[in-house]
């Protein structure tokens, strides 16, 4: 589904990432783990086109998308959520999801201003679909609330609903469990699995090891900007290099 090939990133003189290459298999859940500062979020930013890599290429279904801006990548089915939740705080929960349906609608500035009949039809249909996505993540009753007023956990769910609305092929989640309590994390695990079962490939950056080990099909470990290991959760748990990186030298 997604292939990263020889990704490197430098900020000025600082090397944030080097020689990162791995694949994310279709309809799987891939976890990207590593200590703080390993470069996980930077990797997501490069994958989604928020900034360009210094070297290497990003391939989506075999197509090189390294030069595309984020909005084009989103249209190709590559969508993400953010570590600190980037909701549109001054819009309602429903409207947030409707923005997620932006790529599936066409009405331009004139059709919208003049309320052309097809624009009204489109509007009705995405309103319904947005409600269904809210239902899917379980926050349908909050549709009319200002997104900025949601609790962290609900905001996370909204962000997932909004991302799913794009009908992604690949969903990148940046620390989806951060800031959630254990009950919420359990529900999140279920939700992520059900997303995968709908045929959406998931890649996530996460610190919560219980969650990662429970839901991921394969893992990639980064340390200090480099690939440390790759494999199934079981293999990673038994990998001495990983244990050292997390616990330090003995």
């Amino acid at each position: 589904m997604l292939r990263l090939s020889g990704i490197g990133k430098r900020f000025g003189g600082l090397t944030a990432l080097q020689e990162i290459s791995f694949r994310v298999a279709p309809a799987s859940i891939t976890g990207i783990i590593g200590p703080n500062g390993a470069g996980k979020t930077t990797l997501f930013n490069i994958a989604t086109g928020i900034y360009p890599p210094t070297e290497g290429a990003v391939l989506l279904e075999g197509k090189d998308i390294s030069a595309l801006p984020p909005e084009k990548r989103a249209r190709l089915g590559l969508v993400r959520t953010f570590q600190n939740i980037e909701l549109f705080g001054k819009m309602t929960v429903l409207e947030n999801v409707m923005v997620g349906l932006h790529t599936q609608t066409k009405s331009g500035i004139f059709a919208c201003a003049f309320r052309m009949p097809w624009q009204l039809r489109e509007e009705r249909s995405i309103r319904e679909r947005a409600k269904r996505w809210l239902d899917f993540v379980g926050i349908a009753e909050l549709a009319g609330v200002e997104a900025g007023k949601l609790s962290f956990g609900k905001g996370r769910l909204l962000e997932i609903a909004r991302a799913l609305a794009l009908d992604p092929k690949l969903l990148l989640m940046d620390e989806p469990a951060a800031g959630l309590n254990s009950k919420e994390t359990q529900e999140l695990a279920k939700l992520i699995k059900s997303i995968r079962d709908r045929g959406v490939t998931v890649a996530l950056v996460e610190h919560d090891m219980d969650l990662v080990m429970e839901i991921c099909d394969s893992l990639v470990v980064l340390n200090l900007g480099s690939m440390l290991a790759e494999g199934t959760p079981k293999e990673i748990q038994d990998n001495p290099a990983v244990v050292t990186a997390y616990l330090g030298e003995e």
Binding site: I50, E71, V79, F88, G89, M91, V99, H102
Partner: peptide
């Protein structure tokens, strides 16, 4: 409308809007 929501989204977070 679709366009108005997109504009307001850009206002709140341009990065998130583009990722959408």
């Amino acid at each position: 409308s679709r366009v108005g929501r997109a504009l307001r989204a850009i206002h709140d977070s341009e990065v998130a809007a583009r990722v959408m």
